[in-house]
Design a protein around this nucleic acid. Structure first.
Lengths: 210, 210
DNA sequence: TGTACATCAGTGAACGCGCGTTCACTGATGTAC
DNA sequence: TGTACATCAGTGAACGCGCGTTCACTGATGTAC
């Protein structure tokens, strides 16, 4: 990597290249936003290695992308949960989670796109989306739970939590994806749009008390 | 096309193949949802013609896709405007427009994706997105105008129309794109979600009168 | 009415390219004796 | 302490494939005389 020649790993340490490959592939995938556009040859070049060296660690390209996608889902979910962790109440936790969602998607459009907008070589095609084990479904489950906790537990029933959750998710996803795809539009800060929508959906502490 | 051999067009009618090419390419693009995945060779085969015949009508693949995208944008915009045309009042017009948006995106996921989610060989990369001339921007302009007409013209000012329009657009786009990408989720009817969100954003006739 | 000819709608073969993957190999390195 | 050897981390060349595009061509067809 860089100008200096790469030294091959010592005899017992060959497995370390596997980590290097995943790291380089992750960087390239984030730039491209499309696993099809990331070639084995480019990953190999980024690692300072020849293409066949990659086939020693992953049987084929699909296996590599699958591993990578699981990592990315994990990172996304963790980022959102960490953001929500320190909140004082349930609605503030939901708010922080939503803000983190948009922030993550905006700051890492390539990663986000691969997780939630990919068709070819996306989660579905790679067999990652298996019911509840689907990491995307897990992230949505987190969001849904956060919505439920913020809703009034008794009193007059609002819209069912599942429907509110889907509405909110559609908005968050649409905001991230549209912003990435239509940068020529003059977007207001994502934070403001998220706060506004949470208010309009009745998902704020204020809305709860009133 | 089909089992019977294709007869080449008569001497003056060569230009008709151009239309056939666009029609076949449109069908393939709708299936693939990605212009990269639609090959010149596949289009030629669908027309019952050899690949070089296509280069006689379009200088290269980009030109073909560009022409196609303009057509698709036009069709999308027309579908929405026609849906809104017969409405009794401005809020009903907005509602019909939004329902048509989701219906169009759900019934034709491939076309929709190419218009609003493509990165490679999408509107931006093909130079179709030039300010106000951008057909996507035109469609969004229609939506924005519909939102403005539905808002109370006087009385207490709600959120600015531009922001409401973006919120609404993000929701509609997110709904269409998520549904297409996560079919394993049990989605409620799009119509109900759209109505619910319009109500929560205060964009219904009822909301206006009250 | 008949014929020579320019034009037109394609064809067929080939090109250079980049891709993922295979296979036999090589040379350094740790280990067993 | 020294040496033979098995193992390991890769390399280098090649494969078959599908792609968009080029180029010279062919054969039917309308038109001019």
């Amino acid at each position: 990597v860089g100008t200096e020649r790469r030294h091959r790993y010592r005899k017992g340490e060959g497995a370390r290249l596997r980590g290097d490959i995943l790291a380089a592939a992750g960087r390239l995938l984030a730039e491209a936003g499309d696993a099809d556009a990331v070639t084995i040859r480019a990953i190999a070049a980024a690692c300072g290695v020849t293409p066949p060296a990659i086939n020693q660690h992953f049987p084929d390209k699909e296996a590599l992308v699958r591993t990578l996608l699981r990592q990315e889902f994990e990172a996304f979910r963790t980022a959102l949960s960490e953001a929500a962790a320190g909140a004082a109440d349930a609605c503030e936790a939901l708010r922080r989670r939503c803000q983190a969602y948009v922030r993550y998607g905006t700051e890492r459009p390539g990663e986000y796109r691969v997780l939630f907008s990919a068709r070819r070589l996306g989660p579905a095609e790679l067999g990652i989306a298996e019911g509840a084990a689907h990491p995307g479904a897990a992230a949505f489950g987190d969001l849904l739970a956060a919505v439920e906790r913020c809703l009034p537990s008794e009193g007059e029933p609002r819209a069912p939590a599942a429907q509110l959750g889907l509405e909110l998710w559609a908005f968050l996803h649409g905001l991230v994806d549209l912003r990435a795809g239509k940068p020529e539009i003059d977007w207001p800060p994502g934070e403001r749009l998220v706060d506004a929508v949470l208010g309009q959906l009745g998902l704020t502490e204020a809305g709860r008390v009133t």
